[in-house]
């Protein structure tokens, strides 16, 4: 086994553990989105925002390059197995959000792991998700205030879930779960 391998088996499997947990959340979010779409479609962004979790928890826990993307892909596979109807949504958001989250930390050369960086990626994710999805949902036919609220929720969702993810990651670090990578 080459020693200079970027991602050790151990890191891969920790990503898998995080991916399974967050993937199950995503699977739940898939089913929840039916209810939300029916009851209060403007809140959809809050539900979809939960898709940022895999990468954020992995990054704030492990703080090494590559883990966000890997964890997203693993989470997408798990959630697809449990909620097959959303397969493209899972794989699409996994790749999109994973690349954004990796990109933001790569710009900082993987030296900064503060809340601020994560929030930047959350806002970018929100914008990039809101545009195509509001189109798919034909949201410009909504009342103007609902349209604005819909878009705001798409920013608020990822931001809130990012905050939760960072809290989970730091709670785990505090519990000494991952001592060194």
């Amino acid at each position: 086994m080459p020693k200079n391998r970027v991602l050790s088996t151990r890191v891969l499997l920790i990503c898998a553990a995080v991916g399974v947990a967050t993937g199950l959340v995503s699977a739940g979010a898939g089913y929840l989105s039916i209810i939300v779409s029916a009851g209060a479609p403007v809140l959809y962004g809050l539900v979809l925002g939960s898709h940022v979790l895999p990468g954020i928890v992995a990054q704030s826990l492990l703080r090494v390059p590559g883990v966000a993307l890997i964890t997203h892909v693993l989470a997408a596979l798990v959630s697809t197995a449990f909620a097959p109807a959303w397969v493209l949504r899972y794989i699409g958001t996994a790749l999109l959000i994973g690349v954004i989250q990796e990109g933001i930390t790569a710009i900082g050369r993987y030296r900064y792991w503060g809340l601020g960086r994560f929030m930047i990626s959350a806002v970018i994710v929100g914008v990039l998700l809101a545009v195509p999805i509001s189109f798919a949902a034909d949201i410009d036919k909504f009342e103007p205030w609902a349209f604005v609220l819909y878009l705001v929720m798409f920013i608020a969702g990822p931001v809130a879930w990012t905050f939760i993810g960072v809290r989970i990651g730091s709670a785990l670090r505090r519990a000494g779960v991952v001592t060194r990578v």
């Binding site: 086994m1 920790i14 989970i168």
Partner: peptide, 27 residues
């Protein structure tokens, strides 16, 4: 529930990783 659940899962994952390495995973 989150911290105990994830902490247990991650420790389990680390043990699985050792077992996989010992069985030539990634050779």
């Amino acid at each position: 529930y989150i911290v105990p659940l994830l902490a247990g899962a991650i420790r389990h994952a680390e043990r699985v990783a050792l077992a996989m390495d010992a069985r030539a995973f990634g050779a």
